[in-house]
Amino acid sequence: MDHSKALRELNIMQQTYATLFSVTNKLQMHGDQYLGQLTSRQYMILIAIAHLPEDETTLTNIATKLGTSKQSANKLIINLENKGYITTIPSKRDKRSINVKITETGKLVMLECGEKAVTLMADIFNDFSTKEVETLWSLLNKLYSFDGDELNGFEEDVNYKFDEMEGYEEAQMRALDRYILRRYRSAHDEIMEGKTTME
């Protein structure tokens, strides 16, 4: 292989690696501003717990789900427990482990932050087509698997019955309406302008 081609390729890889750090930090800062009651990292801890089977919500499994260290996950769990959003209980499977459970207060906070997260998604992916978002997700999954570990994502159903909570459906509809308005605002504006012109 030509040295100049290899050097260019390596430079692009280095720029991509550095950019991932900047993007992650920027997304986290903006997420913190949008979510309000929780930081992005705290919200993702709750999301990870909700996507694990109830008897498998150990510190190790939560950290693995988020691709972080047990120490980092533990700090966030302690903080969330102090706020009353989660509780820890002894594991039925392993007496040396604990399982983490989201409290009713934690579920309410998740619901509120979930509504705000929809707005965040619409705004940060504003300039992406659906196809581009799908491609990005696929590429990030591929990048995560560079060492042979597959990403254990969030595609499966949550183990908490949020749809049974009072006000859940209304909150979901509000969030979707807000998402549609923000995501497709240019199309919405064009329709509204067309109506105004026709009138």
Results as ranks from 00 to 15, higher is better:
K75Y: 13
S22I: 06
A171N: 07
M192E: 06
R96Y: 10
L7D: 07
K142H: 15
M13G: 05
N11R: 10
R41C: 10
G194R: 03
L20C: 01
N79Y: 09
Y17W: 02
F21E: 01
Q71K: 14
V118D: 00
R185M: 12
R96A: 08
T105E: 12
Q37F: 13
S145I: 06
L7I: 01
A50C: 13
T103G: 00
R174W: 00
L108I: 10
S129L: 00
R178E: 09
K65Q: 12
N126F: 08
A63G: 06
G67D: 05
H30W: 09
K26M: 10
M198K: 13
M192S: 08
K161Q: 14
E134F: 05
A18F: 02
I180N: 07
L10W: 11
D94W: 00
V109D: 00
V23G: 00
E156M: 11
K5L: 03
L59A: 12
K26F: 08
L20R: 00
R93Q: 12
E169D: 03
V133L: 10
I45H: 07
S69Y: 04
Y179S: 04
M198N: 11
I98Y: 12
Y168G: 08
L27R: 04
F128I: 01
C113G: 05
N159I: 02
T135M: 05
L52P: 01
K131Y: 02
V118H: 07
D32V: 05
A50T: 15
M110L: 04
K101F: 09
A187C: 09
N99W: 06
Q28K: 10
H51I: 14
V23E: 04
E199R: 13
L46C: 12
I180E: 11
S97Q: 12
A175Q: 00
S129N: 03
E199C: 11
A18C: 00
Q71R: 14
V109H: 01
K65L: 06
K101Y: 04
